[in-house]
Design a binder for these strands. Structure first.
Lengths: 107, 107
DNA sequence: TTTATATATTGCAATATTACGATAATAAAG
DNA sequence: CTTTATTATCGTAATATTGCAATATATAAA
C-alpha cells in the first residue's frame, strides 16, 4: 500500500513520527544547521550552500515550514528564513521525554 | 528520481538522517515503547499489541535491527527483542548535540 | 516424524518521497 | 512599464516506503 496506518497509533506517537520524518533528511538537517550559523537573517544562499536545485530546496523549506520549525519573513526581494525557537525547544522536549520514557529494562 | 543525494552531505548529516528515518514511524515508536514497558525479555506479542500484520511488524523490527537499536535473542520458539541501551544512548547524544549546535540566532 | 507455534522472507500493489526543468509570482531597480 | 533577481508552484520521472497474503523456516511438543 505505502500509506501509514495512523489511526491505530496514539496522537503522541503520530506527532513524534511526523516531526522526526521532517528532520530525517540530510538536506533539511543541512538547511537547519546552515541557518543557525548565519549571523544575520539573509538566508537566501541556502541553495548554493547545500548544493541542490532551487526548487528542491524550496520544497524542503516548505516541509520545515509545515511543522512550523522555520518561518520566512520577506526582506526586500529575498526571504529570510529563521528557526522557530519555541517549536525547536518543543521538539527537543518531545524527544527528551521519548528517550527518557523508553528505556531498556531487560538483557 | 526519488533518491536522496547523500554524496553532497557530510557523514554526520547522513548518519543522523538515517537514524531519524528509522525512528520516524509510529509503528516503530510504538514497538520501542512497548518493548521498554516489558518487565522480562519475553517480547513476542508485539504483533497483537501494535495491531499490524505479522509480516509488517517483522519488517519494522528488521529496520530497527539494521541500525542496531534492538537485538533479538532466540528464547525457545520465540524471539526476545531488547533495546540496545548503548546505541540508544549514542543516538540520544547525537540528537542532543544536533539540537545544541543548531540554534536560532536571528529574528 | 508430525503438528503447532513463532518469526522471517518473498512478491506485489498502493502510495509517498526526492529531485529537477519549466514556469509563475513577487518585488526592487532602471 | 520593463527588466532583473529571488522564491514558489507545477508536472513528471525515478525510487522508496508501507502493508499484507502467501510461503518458508525454525523450534518445541506430541
Amino acid at each position: 500500500m505505502g500509506v501509514t496506518k495512523t489511526e491505530i497509533f496514539t496522537e503522541k506517537q503520530n506527532q513524534l513520527a511526523i516531526v522526526l520524518k521532517v528532520l530525517a533528511h540530510p538536506a533539511r538537517i543541512a538547511i537547519l544547521e546552515y541557518i543557525s550559523t548565519q549571523e544575520a537573517c539573509i538566508c537566501n544562499d541556502i541553495v548554493e550552500e547545500v548544493g541542490l536545485a532551487q526548487p528542491t530546496i524550496s520544497q524542503h523549506l516548505k516541509e520545515l515550514k509545515k511543522i512550523d520549525l522555520i518561518s520566512g519573513e520577506i526582506e526586500g526581494k529575498s526571504i529570510c528564513y529563521c528557526i522557530n525557537l519555541q517549536k525547536w525547544k518543543e521538539i527537543q522536549q518531545l524527544l527528551n521525554s521519548f528517550f527518557l520514557n523508553t528505556q531498556s529494562n531487560c538483557c
